[in-house]
């Protein structure tokens, strides 16, 4: 059974549909990458999955159970996590408090997970008492991802994790995503840097106008001349 499956998802804001039938599926140990032109509904799809947007039609499942239009708090309890693209940290809280907030629903001892996050993101360990708003862009992204990992999710949704970062930081973030995935977390992310992202992807979804245009393994999509020409800048 697939970890995550979305079939024929329609949805949007205020009666206007942005998603017009999106299909996706992901296994437990896979990285899925959503690419496509601006306005194709990539981020909208993530929000629809995480219950932040009303799905009018279609079905979304996590481990075979329907999570269509579920409340975000409920989804966090079901071991899903979401990292928004912007405003994804609590700026006046310290790094450690940010991570604690990720573990808000946990009532057990989350110290081991805290240590694990610091081992994923060593730069954060030195700055645990510093307000997150004072960190650099890349470190903020690490705080945001660390916060999402605190519940030990089985699926993490990342909305453009490398937006606004320098190429050096970009490859560092991608490396972290691979190691998170190796630790047994399914990753579904939206990326502007399509080529680099597809390289680390097990599955790629090319969305255009709220529908799947191409769906294949990451490598196959990179090699597909049509995809390369239209979406990967030649």
């Amino acid at each position: 059974m697939a970890l995550f499956e979305a079939t024929n998802v329609h949805g949007g804001y205020g009666g206007m549909n942005i998603l017009n039938g999106v299909n996706m599926s992901l296994e437990a140990d896979e990285i899925g990458v959503i690419v496509g032109p601006n306005g194709a509904g990539k981020s909208t799809m993530l929000k629809a999955i995480f219950g932040l947007l009303h799905v009018n039609e279609g079905n979304i499942q996590l481990r075979g159970e329907s999570i269509t239009n579920a409340d975000p708090v409920e989804l966090v309890k079901r071991k899903m996590a979401f990292v928004p693209q912007e405003k994804n940290i609590f700026p006046s809280l310290t790094v450690e408090e940010n991570l604690e907030m990720g573990a808000f629903i946990r009532h057990d001892d989350f110290q081991p997970m805290l240590d694990k996050v610091y081992s994923f993101f060593p730069p954060l360990a030195d700055k645990r008492k510093q307000p997150a708003g004072e960190l650099s862009g890349g470190q903020r992204q690490m705080v945001a991802m660390g916060r999402a990992l605190m519940t030990e999710p089985s699926l993490i949704l990342l909305d453009e994790p490398t937006a606004g970062l320098s190429p050096l930081y970009m490859s560092e973030i991608f490396e972290r995503i691979i190691s998170i995935n190796k630790a047994g977390v399914g990753v579904l992310m939206v990326e502007q840097h399509a080529k680099q992202a597809l390289k680390i992807a097990h599955k790629g979804f090319v969305l255009v106008a709220g529908q799947n245009r191409f769906t294949d393994t990451g490598q196959n999509l990179i090699n597909d001349p049509e995809v390369a020409k239209a979406f990967l800048g030649g």
Partner: peptide
């Protein structure tokens, strides 16, 4: 600080 993120974090 950030009400939307609080909701997304499961608070």
């Amino acid at each position: 600080d950030n009400p939307d993120l609080a909701r997304v974090s499961g608070i």
